[in-house]
Write a protein that binds this DNA or RNA. Structure first.
Length: 434
RNA sequence: GUGGGUGUAGCUCAGUGGUAGAGCACCGGAUUGUGGCUCCGGGUGUCGUGGGUUCAAAACCCAUCAUCCACCCCA
């Protein structure tokens, strides 16, 4: 036997789990539509240089985590490690930069990392992006919206918000120099990896978790003391809105985010419930990124929610709704081995599905004894059975049995439909419950 | 890339060198058109894989793969 397994860090989402995914995705989607964000879908493969241009040469994603390969024409392709860049490519390609765009996406991302709790090679993000709105009101809209999402999922109290501002391009450069000078004094305490970062991109050291340099890192010069006046105003206004709308936050001067394209506002929703993979949602403003692709300066902001981590959080905090399983309403049992009867029963089923589109019917093809079928129906909590065999065929009727009320009636098709309608009236909108 | 743990039935796991096991799940029958029970029967297996030690290996040794956890980093 040849055994073929899924790739490392890439998981199947089986039927039992997929209902959870649908539940969460639907909750988020409803909130996004409520804010008139519309869905955008972009390919999961792009030309490699789309990512190498935008994400920053010194980020770990570019250095070691991309799934890159050549196609048959030797083109360098990459499975998207994140989606913001692809969306920018799409917005530019489709000439959509002249007006405000608010979009959301959901889908798989790929990073070649060693898997661990809350970290996978194929993982899923739900994200939003907004283009052409430069004011802090926009920043607040996204933060308030994510707050609403976590509230709707019941995990708001397990999360806290951290915010920071990275300032403008020029002030960032100024601060980078100051940070570099500060860090250089401690060069002897840094390992080769950290020294590499210090020279190439000192900001990367701010959120490092390497333990023996926490003192150095916590005492770095505060970026907020060096950012430009406009960015300060922007940040102060954002804080005002958050205060007024009762969104609690903590300012983390060392919050810089993993990608180089951010400017001004950055934020993360973190949790203490999941160990070291503690960021559930992260984002920020990237006002300079579109200009980088030879577009006119277009302000933009976005964020992404890690779905696996969200599910983990719901699970560990016991916030997953119970009873999400789709259960059939009735069990249709054919009792006969005769082909003519089986064929008739199949046609009858079609008729029932036409007449009662919301009814979920489980069909057993006379594959085991009648008794076993009743046993199974009981076990699956199905109380209404439709029975079809020799007797029913002769009389052109169907037996309907209620296992709970312990009743059984032989009904013609019309009264049968009416009976089923009355029994399942309240469940006719089953899917709309979530 | 680095470090540690774990790989035995569908699932959870027991099994310290001598016949491959338990619980749950599953399947068949008692009972082929009528109720969750009960009774009877069924192990469904490459003990992750390859090699070594041994009269004998699921167990000991080596290698390898997978997986989980952690570091780095990130959602």
């Amino acid at each position: 036997m040849i055994t073929i397994k899924s790739l490392k860090g890439m998981n199947d989402i089986l039927p039992k789990k997929s209902v959870i995914w649908q539940y969460i995705e639907n909750k988020i989607k409803m909130i996004l539509y409520q804010h008139l964000y519309l869905e955008i879908r972009t390919p999961i493969i792009e030309q490699t240089n789309l990512f190498t241009i935008s994400l920053g040469q010194t980020t770990d994603i570019i250095k070691k985590e991309m799934y890159t390969f050549k196609d048959k024409k030797q083109k360098q392709l990459t499975l998207r490690p994140e989606n913001t860049t692809s969306i920018i490519r799409s917005i530019l390609e489709n000439h959509m930069t002249n007006q405000t765009q608010k979009v959301w996406y959901v889908g798989p991302m790929f990073r070649y990392e060693n898997p661990q709790n809350g970290r996978f090679r194929q993982f899923h993000q739900f994200g939003v992006e907004s283009f052409n709105k430069h004011g802090p009101e926009m920043d607040s809209e996204i933060i308030i919206m994510t707050n609403r999402i976590f509230k709707a999922l019941g995990v708001q109290k397990y999360l806290h918000l951290e915010i920071n501002s990275l300032g403008s391009k020029t002030s960032r450069r100024l601060y980078t120099n100051i940070l570099f000078k500060y860090l250089k004094k401690f060069k002897n305490y840094l390992d080769s990896n950290l020294i590499y970062k210090m020279y190439k991109n000192p900001l990367r050291l701010l959120d490092t978790k390497v333990k023996n340099i926490t003192y150095i890192v916590t005492h770095t010069p505060n970026i907020l003391d060096y950012i430009d006046q406009k960015s300060i105003k922007h940040f102060e206004y954002l804080k005002k809105i958050l205060n007024y709308t009762n969104i609690k936050y903590k300012i983390n001067k060392n919050l810089v985010r993993g990608l180089d394209y951010y400017s001004r506002t950055v934020f993360e929703w973190k949790t203490k419930a999941l160990g070291s993979q503690n960021t559930i949602c992260a984002g920020g403003r990237y006002d300079y990124l579109l200009k980088f692709f030879n577009c006119k300066k277009t302000p933009a902001i976005g964020c992404a929610i890690g779905l696996e981590r969200t599910i983990l959080l719901l699970k560990t905090t016991n916030k997953l709704p119970t009873n999400m399983k789709i259960k059939s309403h009735v069990c249709f049992i054919t009792i006969s081995n005769k082909k003519t009867i089986i064929i008739k029963s199949i046609k009858l089923l079609e008729f029932l599905r036409n007449e009662l589109p919301n009814l979920i019917i489980q069909n057993t093809f006379c594959d085991t004894s009648f008794k076993k079928n009743i046993y199974k129906a009981k076990k699956n909590n199905i109380n209404i059975l439709l029975i079809y065999g020799e007797n029913e065929v002769q009389k052109n009727k169907v037996s309907i049995k209620d296992l709970y009320k312990k009743t059984q009636n032989l009904l013609a098709l019309k009264p049968l439909i009416n009976t089923l309608k009355s029994i399942f009236y309240y469940e006719s909108n089953y899917y709309n419950n979530w």
